[in-house]
Nucleic acid binder design. Structure first.
Lengths: 221, 221, 221, 221
DNA sequence: GATGAATGAGTTTTCATTCAT
DNA sequence: GATGAATGAAAACTCATTCAT
């Protein structure tokens, strides 16, 4: 029994090692140079391992994409759990998570862009390489809708939709900026820009640092 | 004489055919599958041509990246020539150019993301795959600086810098959005979102459609 | 005690399962695709079994060849036991056995030809893949010799030798015909052809249906 | 022009070298051990050659099967051209060709049986591995039909059909015999057996050496 | 004793590059 | 100059065999 369990654990460990090695390779040498040899050398495992555990290199890449995507959402979820419950606090959490060192770092953006480079060709990878997942979109949209309604703007739905689309575009743009200029990129500046725009849109809910914790309108109401 | 000229022209034509074939391949089958065979088949030229004209496949890719980058700036320049001289009109021209069908289409975004996927690894390609070129940055920054100064905001330099950074991030984000969801992407919506943000920042200079042609402050001054 | 016996039986059962799975695989996917994986999957046994019971795949193939050959001779022996004792009845039994559904069927001919394909290379397999075993040859030769002597032909030995050789060749040829055209092959027609030839050679001993049970010469003598 | 021609000839030569090397390998080491490495080493050509000329190893094997089949029929045709026109002379030519050293030799039978071993699995190879081609069948059947009609037997069609089927089976059987015992096989004996059977069937048309050149019935008629 | 995860040699195939024509 | 046949290194993948569990 213990023997069987140990073997199962070893199996799992090997799978994970291969996935991590694949992601490392994507980050360090890019998609085109991520060969089976490159991967098994990094994982310090044998050649046959990839086909044993994933049946083909393509399937391994797909699993690696799934893993990267899952990691991203895990990080996000964790931050959301710790954040306050007001819509502006949730938005602050999402934005700060997306620009945190945990999520936005050289390794992960390179993986992201390497995978996306092939995503337009491979449906399998595409499924996992789209951050702007429905889940994330809905989360942000719901928060903006609450704010838009509370702000008593005309057509709160349209406003929330545009705010969501704009915020996601801004975050994507910041990621691209980091990807292209990782050394000159300034996280603080990126945050300030985003919150400046949000505070222009909804001055009672955001300021240059992030969420306004106790917005006036709440008191007034 | 004529023979020599004709040969030179053929030479140029072959080079261009190969570059276009390379870009087509990047757009249609991705970086990893863009092989010498794929390229010469598309160009309907002989196998040896690539090495004759570019010495290696890598150099051809570099030239293709250069070509794509040059095309982008040519399109932009053309639109700027036709635009008005006020800073807000220049900004409108840049934004509308960046989101026009000419610049933002399936083929070109796929090329862009395919090249970027490898850019982190290849310095040579990186040089040409960064839209947010100094030239473009300066153009946008200067326009925002004019507006910031005229708007009499505090620290107009910092404001212009953030506006530039934010605008470029927004445009990048819109490109990413188009890349990932080319069929559901809505150009008008993207423009409206950007101009909504700009009109929030500089209400006298932008409205939801783009530049405000004769801003009040100009008249007042 | 019982445990030991049971283990021995399991051992035997596993061996047989592997041999049958090997033969099934040879029949269904051919020699080249008969891999260890293919075999253990068919036998629903663990990978290590082959080496545990046969020490190597090659040895398993050899045992499978031996098994197939033994099966063939078992079938033959059974039919001979039930046949009459006259030489022509023995010959009839051999021929009818060789063309019966039990012996001549898609599975067994495919196994036969798959093994023969490799027999020219592997001595070990060759030993078992030659139907025209000494045992069979002698059986047929003795019967024809009896008939040839009783027929008072010149050089009865030479006649019997040729008749034996010819009959074996005919049977082999029928097998080949069945192998190549299993669906259009007609057992009755094959039998009629062979007995037509035999009845031409020894009219008093064979007719189109098989052996002549009580030949005239026996009575006369 | 000459340059182009020479290249075309070299191309053809390389193709043929690969096909011959493949057939040599099938004859000498069998189907399962006929690897790309084995083939290119025999042909003294580079690895890439097989895929350059045949796109895959499987296609090369198919072409080799086609080539072997074509060679067989070429040999046969040549002998038929030189043979007399009477049906019994044609039959003699076919039989002697099939058992001649040119057609029936260690190399060719091993190739034949190696290919047939896989033929049941690969349709592509099966197409070329069936000697008993319609063409050959028709040739033999027509000759036997002429003889059967001239012999005034009952149901000449059925007789000719059986004679054809039987003769082909005999030839196949002789090939199998040669394949299994190439060193003890006796061509003269094989011929004598076949002609003995034919002379039993049609005594006026065949004797132990082959065709009867001027059969009595022709004179009588 | 039995299992199936692991190994790495060997397989087919792809590919950028070279070079005789 | 231009061509495309040829090359062989390196790619992905298969496989019989081993061995820790």
């Amino acid at each position: 029994m213990t023997a069987k369990l140990k073997r199962q654990e070893n199996r799992k460990r090997s799978r994970l090692l291969l996935i991590e090695a694949t992601l490392d390779s994507l980050a360090e040498v890019g998609f085109a140079r991520t060969s089976v040899s490159e991967i098994v050398e990094r994982a310090k495992l044998s050649r046959g391992m990839i086909h044993l555990h994933f049946s083909s290199k393509d399937k391994l890449l797909e699993e690696a994409a799934r893993h990267a995507s899952a990691s991203y959402f895990d990080d996000l979820e964790q931050l959301l759990d710790k954040s306050g419950n007001s819509p502006q606090e949730k938005l602050e959490a999402v934005i700060k998570s997306d620009l945190s060192d945990n999520v936005l770092n050289k390794r992960s953006v390179r993986i992201w862009f390497a995978l996306r480079g092939e995503a337009s060709v491979s449906q399998a990878i595409a499924r996992y390489s789209d951050t702007r997942d429905k889940k994330l979109y809905d989360l942000i949209f719901d928060a903006f809708l609450d704010i838009a309604i509370a702000s008593k703007v005309n057509e709160p739905g349209a406003v929330a939709r545009d705010a969501t689309h704009g915020s996601l575009a801004l975050l994507e743009g910041m990621w691209t900026d980091f990807f292209l200029h990782p050394d000159s990129f300034n996280r603080g500046s990126a945050l300030r820009i985003i919150f400046r725009i949000l505070s222009n849109m909804f001055p009672r809910y955001f300021n240059l640092e992030g969420a306004v914790k106790s917005p006036l309108n709440d008191m007034v109401a």
